[in-house]
Amino acid sequence: MTLERTRARTGPVAAINPVAKLGAAALLTVPLVLTLDPVSAGVALLLEFALFPFAGLGWREFWRRTWPVWLAAPLTALTIALYGETSGRVLLELFVVRVSEGSLELAFATMLRVLAIALPSVVLFVTVDPTDLADGLAQVLRLPARFVLGALAGLRMVGLFLDDWRALELARRARGVADRGRVRRFLGMAFALLVLSLRRGATLATAMEARGFGAPGRRTWARESTFGRREWALLAVGAAVGGIAVVVAVVAGTWNLILGPG
């Protein structure tokens, strides 16, 4: 484990209840989803970058975790710029491609909104442990225990699926059946993994039932999931970022409610 990953696991955000992280992400995301303008997304993004250092995440780890977002945002903007709704002066027209001033503005606003929504979500959930999240969902939000524990068990199996896929690939190579027909090989391995997953899932379900995970009545938990001042503070920060972004956009006259009539 590197030093930066250790910092991420021991930073001030790491010890906060995952339910609060879910809530903060929702409070920040909902205002940005309701509008499509560069001002609200840009203000939210600036505030987020001012808060990212307090997450205890090193910059190298930050870039390593968020590079898919930085790749997806410009690609999304490019698609909208080329094929988005035409408005204003047309700058380029070639077959089905039509680039206008309005489509460029829409593409820029969309790129900022993708960054403002996705980056804090990645930063907040880098330190989330699946077991802690399940404890919070069941104890704080009072979700059904059977649903939570089943989802946790399924999530824990994802790593095993990846290991099984690599083992299947090595086994087929050792038998000399993995040199040709990539599509056929992929379909065969996918079917084999499906069969293996069904068998493992049935075994896991039987084991969980035998240990009383499906028993009726109120169950006990090995670890208590608490929700205190740190969690409420994180929720307040998420609401403040979203609220400030909305207020600035309204004052600047760029607020564009995309769910409104017309």
Rank of each mutant, 00 (worst) to 15 (best):
M1D: 02
E4L: 15
R5N: 13
T10R: 15
A15F: 14
N17W: 02
N17T: 05
N17L: 06
V19M: 09
L22W: 15
A26N: 04
T35E: 03
G42L: 01
L46S: 07
L47R: 00
F54A: 14
G56V: 12
G58C: 07
G58Y: 05
W59Q: 15
W59E: 09
E61M: 07
L71H: 02
L71R: 04
A72D: 13
T79G: 08
I80F: 13
A81W: 11
T86E: 07
R98V: 10
E105M: 14
E105P: 14
L106H: 14
F108R: 06
M111G: 15
R113S: 13
A116D: 03
A116E: 04
I117S: 04
S121Y: 07
V122E: 01
V122K: 00
V123F: 00
V128R: 00
P130W: 02
T131A: 03
L133C: 13
A138Q: 08
L143T: 09
R146I: 09
R146N: 05
R146G: 04
A151Y: 04
A151V: 07
L152V: 01
G159K: 06
L168Q: 08
A171Y: 12
A171D: 05
R175L: 09
A178T: 02
G181N: 09
G181R: 07
V183H: 11
R184E: 10
F186K: 12
A190M: 11
A190E: 09
V195F: 07
T203A: 14
R218W: 06
T220Q: 01
E224R: 02
T226F: 07
G228L: 06
W232E: 10
A233F: 10
A236H: 12
V237I: 11
V237G: 15
I244L: 06
V246A: 11
V247Q: 08
V250T: 05
V251W: 09
G253Y: 00
N256L: 08
I258H: 02
P261R: 00
